[in-house]
Structure formats: C-alpha cells, structure tokens
C-alpha cells in the first residue's frame, strides 16, 4: 500500500504539537523536501482549524483522497488526543486504503499495530510532564523544605 502512492497531501497546523510550534511555511518546506527527495508529488496542504481539539480538516482530507494519494504530516502529535478519534482516523484510512506518514518520528499510520506504536510514543512523551513538570518539582521541593 505504501509503495503504490504517487502523491502526498500535506496536513499542517498552526497549533502547538508536543510543545512545538512550527510556522506553516516551514512545515511546508519540510514536507515538500521529503517528497522531492523520495519522488512523491507534493500536494498543497490542508491546514487544520484553530478551534480547540478540532480535526475536521484531517477528516475532510482523508475522505477526499484519491487512489494515488496519501497524507504527509510533521508529527504524530498532530493526531487527535482522544483515542477514539484516532480510531476513527485509522478506520477511514483503512477504508480508503491509504496512510499518513509522520516525518519527524518516521512512523506510518495505516494499521492497528501502527496505532498502538503511536499511542505508546505519545504516552511516553507525556512522562516528561509527569517526571519533570516545574509545578510538581516546586511542590516536592516545598514538601522537602517543610520537612527539614
């Protein structure tokens, strides 16, 4: 399935993903360069809306894809946070016999296994906040200081 696609349609966002913000023109450069280096035709991107937790453009894009096309995006953190919504995305991708390629993590999404891998990676990244969150650190520090 991965080999039979000639075109990759960009999917970009103005919002932050995993604490990163990449301006759209730069996301475009990254995605276009990947396509150029790997002999894909790059198709101008769908830009996700700025509404909180909105993935309407992603859903619209998947439903619009033609047989020759898949999606390219910068990061797995641009997928919906809600796991049920990821399942919906995956179901649509399977139905359309296509995939999303995430450039930064070099991960494809077109199977349940990919979905599990993505889920794991995202949960792993959340540990950064659990272990090294400033607020929690300050709370621990206060507890320690009060004890001493």
């Amino acid at each position: 399935m991965i080999n039979n696609k000639k075109k990759l349609v960009g999917y970009v966002t103005n919002s932050n993903f995993n604490e990163k913000i990449i301006p759209i023109p730069f996301q475009n450069i990254l995605l276009r360069n990947y396509c150029k280096d790997n002999n894909f035709t790059y198709v101008l991107p769908y830009n996700e809306t700025v509404f909180k937790n909105s993935y309407s453009q992603l859903i619209t894009l998947i439903n619009k894809l033609d047989k020759d096309s898949a999606i390219i995006s910068c990061s797995i953190f641009m997928l919906p946070e809600n796991e049920n919504h990821v399942k919906k995305v995956l179901k649509l991708l399977k139905y359309k016999k296509t995939y999303i390629y995430f450039l930064y993590e070099n991960i494809f999404l077109n199977s349940n296994l990919d979905s599990k891998k993505i889920n794991f990676e995202r949960k792993l990244a959340k540990l950064n906040n659990v272990f090294f969150n400033d607020d929690q650190f300050k709370r621990y520090l206060n507890i320690l200081l009060n004890k001493s």
Partner: peptide, 11 residues
C-alpha cells in the same frame, strides 16, 4: 456545527 463536532467532515 464544525466547532461542535471536532471530527466533522466539512464536505
């Protein structure tokens, strides 16, 4: 309607 359903299809 788009805001209400975060995975709505605009088409």
């Amino acid at each position: 309607e788009i805001k209400k359903n975060s995975v709505s299809d605009l088409n």
